[in-house]
Design a protein around this nucleic acid. Structure first.
Lengths: 186, 186
DNA sequence: CCTACCGATCGGTAGG
DNA sequence: CCTACCGATCGGTAGG
């Protein structure tokens, strides 16, 4: 048996996402990443061309996942509240199923060069616009602010939710939706 | 006139807070910090003993500011909703007045060694407990989850609020409070 | 994917 | 607070 650790490009990107999410971009060295894959640092460069390119790819995966989720949610039929529910459920699903890409997308975009950072900000605004549009359809008083508040709650899920905790995955989206619709309720 | 740049320890800690907030702990070098103060890297060590100590000090300042705010808010008389309003107003005030320490406290605690990181988690839990206590007083259905959701909105203020924007500082706390109490409202 | 490197930069110290 | 350093580590390359 060979002791060679043959890795695909996707292995490299996914492992990079995990380390960027856990330790941050600047807190992760290329040798850290290689070691996680059972390689030496120099071996990474047959898969990718630079550390920065890796960050770009992980962040773009996060952006694409959110946008696909929104596009799908906006196609939901019925009253606008159905689409809002789909947006919330989709967002929670993306966070739970792609935690590493999501955390890197949300927390490490600042480490990108200006061109890519602006592209990420544009992607976030486009995603947020999906929320604003549905909230407008619902005749919410201040759709812009409501979208910010709702996304604040949704994005924070990454920071506190543990699948092993008392709150089951299906309940989570329901609870967020309920809080957004009616507040803390006495 | 001397060209010597005489700095106090507090100058060093405050400037470190700004850079840690903007670029992250691992994205800030001691030479970056020194240059910002008009010094050479080695000169920093007459003020502080290590980079890690600097992070500890900035993060602890953030923790203390939030806890002082909560202690003060909990002393508010009248029905519990008054105390909740004071907690929200206090939190927004701390974020806006001490943005660098807050951002470092919220985003860079992961770069601390285990001992200090656990201390920060304990400080956060104690602060969150102030919210849980007031929400319990208000007979909210799920005070623990309500506290998480409300703090999600409050902590996100650091990420999007611009004092130059349409929302004035005084309105911000009111809008967060209203969202927490009643949701998006159709 | 590894061996053998490269120049640059890192946090930090000794001594004045 | 500066001069003059230190060993360690950084991202990355040449060549096989």
């Amino acid at each position: 048996m060979s002791t060679r650790a043959a890795r695909s490009r996707d292995d490299v990107v996914r492992t990079a996402g995990r380390l960027f999410a856990e330790r941050g971009y600047h807190g992760t060295s290329m040798r850290d990443l290689a070691a996680e894959l059972g390689l030496l640092g120099s071996s990474l460069y047959s898969h990718i061309s630079s550390k920065e390119d890796l960050l770009v790819e992980v962040v773009e995966r996060g952006a694409d996942l959110f946008q696909s989720s929104a596009d799908s949610a906006l196609a939901t039929s019925g009253p606008p509240v159905n689409r809002l529910k789909a947006l919330v459920g989709g967002h929670v699903g993306v966070v739970l199923d792609h935690l590493d890409e999501v955390r890197t997308f949300l927390n490490e975009a600042g480490a990108l060069d200006e061109v890519h950072r602006k592209r990420v900000l544009a992607a976030r605004d486009r995603y947020e616009a999906s929320f604003r549009a549905v909230l407008s359809e619902m005749n919410v008083e201040n759709p812009k602010l409501a979208a910010i508040f709702l996304l604040s709650v949704l994005n924070a899920v990454e920071r506190w939710y543990r699948p092993s905790g008392p709150l089951k995955r299906e309940q989570l989206a329901d609870e967020v939706f309920r809080f957004a619709m009616t507040g803390i309720k006495p």
